[in-house]
Design a protein around this nucleic acid. Structure first.
Lengths: 192, 192
DNA sequence: ATCGAATGAGACATTGATGTCTCAGAAGCG
DNA sequence: CGCTTCTGAGACATCAATGTCTCATTCGAT
């Protein structure tokens, strides 16, 4: 049995477990390691073999979310077209990660003093740069700082993810509602 | 020593402890009962005498936040003036509670199945009614549902509270940033 | 100043989650 | 089939937070 095959199987399992854990923890942030294991259809011991502990699991989830966010940012081609079109692409790309993202945001509040993965700074910078580009192009109003617009973006994505999960808004409207609300606010209005 | 004087003193202490607990838990949602007690400058035993347990403390905080939110809603007079002005008043009134509100929102996600205080439904209804009124008056666009606008309102308030607390945005701009972003999106634009 | 209530500090048992370990069984491979 | 590896279940020990209790002290009212 070759190492590569092992690695492949392990990786697939890891990936699957992570997905399930993400889905569960998004719904119930305080889920037990045992609950996570049950949800993933594996034993607690096996879960421990893959992830040294709860911290490691959360870190792995953070890495997964970060990776997918970076992929979303890359796929959205934030520096092409108008800033508005780029933002719409970003929202659409980020939708599948929104639940995990919402979980990680609340989880990061617990880390408090601990260092957060520096990867998020890159995402932040990319999103803020998009808003700045929109301002420089005259598309977006300049009285709302890119930093605030970035925060608002995260906030709306998280709120919408949770609202959808809770059945308060329709999931199919996700991209439209966020884009319209955020763009309507960010886009310069002729009547101002 | 009369009962009423006892009650008075107790209430004052309770209030102060609750404020401190709110401030601490807003920053660190996982703070220990001991940490809460230290922060309030009292002993753990005393804290326990006032609030039977952590649950009771959180419930009391929920009651406090709810009470202040209802006061904010009442003070904002949501059914007077234009919907826009009413919304601006609401945002201004809600600002002092925003931190506690953000904490309670994330905390409520943990309650999961358990019943949430029905008082929040009243707040939700009042805010949603404001957005509906704005739509009926032709001030707000009708393609974004009141339910979503209400969610977005909470999301932006929470995001802003956290961003301010983290120093990413200036606290003095709180009302302006939320109002402008939310209204800009909710307000019907002539170019649409 | 004195009495009674409230407090703070600490000891203690309890609970729940975690992490580690073992062992028998299943699944892969030759 | 026989071997190795991985897995699942469970039995522990550990640890942190919680809740309860006692007791000496402090505070406030009279």
């Amino acid at each position: 049995m070759s190492h590569s095959m092992y690695a492949c199987l392990m990786t697939v399992d890891r990936e699957q477990v992570l997905r399930t854990a993400a889905a569960l923890l998004t719904r119930k942030a305080t889920a037990t390691m045992d609950e996570v294991a049950r949800a993933a259809g594996i034993g607690r011991a096996t879960l421990h073999r893959h992830f040294a502990g709860r911290d490691a699991l959360v870190r792995a989830l953070e890495a997964l979310g970060l990776q997918e966010c970076e992929a979303a940012v890359a796929a959205a081609r934030l520096d092409e077209d108008s800033a508005e079109q780029a933002l719409r692409r970003l929202i659409a790309e980020v939708e599948p990660v929104s639940g995990l993202l919402a979980f990680l945001v609340t989880e990061n509040q617990l880390f408090e003093g601990e260092q957060v993965n520096e990867g998020w700074a890159r995402i932040d910078a990319a999103v803020a740069a998009l808003f700045r580009r929109g301002q420089e192009r005259g598309e977006f109003r300049i009285d709302l700082t890119p930093a605030w617009l970035t925060e608002a973006f995260y906030g709306l994505v998280g709120s919408c993810a949770w609202a959808v999960q809770d059945g308060r808004v329709a999931g199919k409207d996700f991209p439209y509602m966020i884009a319209e609300l955020l763009l309507g606010g960010a886009r310069r209005s002729v009547e101002k």
